[in-house]
């Protein structure tokens, strides 16, 4: 199976040299295959969002190497990173990050507009992806007129329209009620199952995590444990709860320097 993401010995240290520094991620290595749905879990402050931001090329790492879809991002300049993001990555955020001043259609089509795609192609892609997510009736509305679930679907549509190599989601259900959250996660799982979309999701919610095919537990900036889903989703959920309880019981091994 083709590897989509390779992270080797990545570290992230905040603060200036000499002054008080804080290591958020330390010598972390992992890889991800095409078509995987990986979840990143860990208590607050464990460094999971930092990890996602580094993979998302938003936050430069202090040391180490990340390559996505066979391309190393460590040596790219700001413009190259921008282009890389717009071509290879799709984002879903907790607070949707939709642009309120644009219609749903405009929001979804933005990644294609940025690549100067022909209008016919844009229209075809938007109608296809919005049908897939069940929001084709809403394309002329503004985000302010949508419900939370509809907003997040729009965000997913925007993240998918340019067929990115990797879809990154940061607490995507954080702002949704449980019913909308479940629908959203099923959508993500279906996308992963049917269309082989590679997804990496940060979450602290065990139920959300149970939709993943593999989980990475981060603690104090290090990879603490890995868990693979083998049986049903409910079994996986129980397994996750056990691991989390287990993690909480163990004494904290601090890495503050």
């Amino acid at each position: 199976m083709k590897s989509i993401l390779q992270a080797s010995k990545i570290s992230k240290t905040y603060g200036m040299k000499g002054a008080a520094t804080y290591t958020a991620i330390q010598d972390l290595s992992f890889s991800m295959n095409e078509g995987e749905f990986i979840g990143i879990m860990g208590p607050s402050g464990s460094g999971k969002t930092t990890l996602l931001n580094m993979v998302a090329t938003l936050d430069p790492m202090t040391s180490g190497e990340i390559s996505i879809d066979g391309v190393s991002i460590s040596s790219m300049n700001e413009d190259q990173l921008s282009d890389f993001r717009s071509e290879k990555l799709g984002f879903i955020f907790q607070d949707f990050n939709l642009l309120e001043n644009m219609t749903v259609f405009e929001n979804i089509s933005l990644p294609l507009s940025l690549q100067n795609t022909k209008l016919e192609k844009i229209q075809a892609s938007v109608s296809q992806v919005s049908r897939l997510l069940g929001i084709s009736d809403l394309t002329e509305k503004y985000p302010a007129e949508l419900s939370g679930g509809q907003k997040q679907r729009t965000a997913i549509a925007r993240a998918l329209i340019h067929q990115p190599a990797l879809l990154l989601a940061d607490e995507p259900t954080g702002a949704l009620d449980s019913r909308n959250a479940a629908t959203l996660l099923e959508t993500l799982a279906d996308l992963n199952e049917d269309r082989k979309v590679s997804i990496m999701m940060v979450t602290h919610d065990p139920r959300s995590a149970s939709y993943c095919s593999r989980l990475l537990f981060i603690k104090d900036g290090k990879l603490d444990r890995e868990l693979r889903s083998r049986g049903s989703r409910e079994e996986f959920h129980q397994e996750i709860l056990t691991v989390l309880g287990d993690l909480d019981r163990r004494p904290v091994a601090g890495v503050r320097a």
């Binding site: 921008s82 990050n97 940025l114 925007r158």
Partner: peptide, 16 residues
């Protein structure tokens, strides 16, 4: 600020 931050995350170049 949020809007421009979103755009930056989506991969819009600073010049643009």
């Amino acid at each position: 600020i949020r809007r421009y931050d979103s755009l930056r995350k989506l991969g819009v170049r600073r010049r643009l």
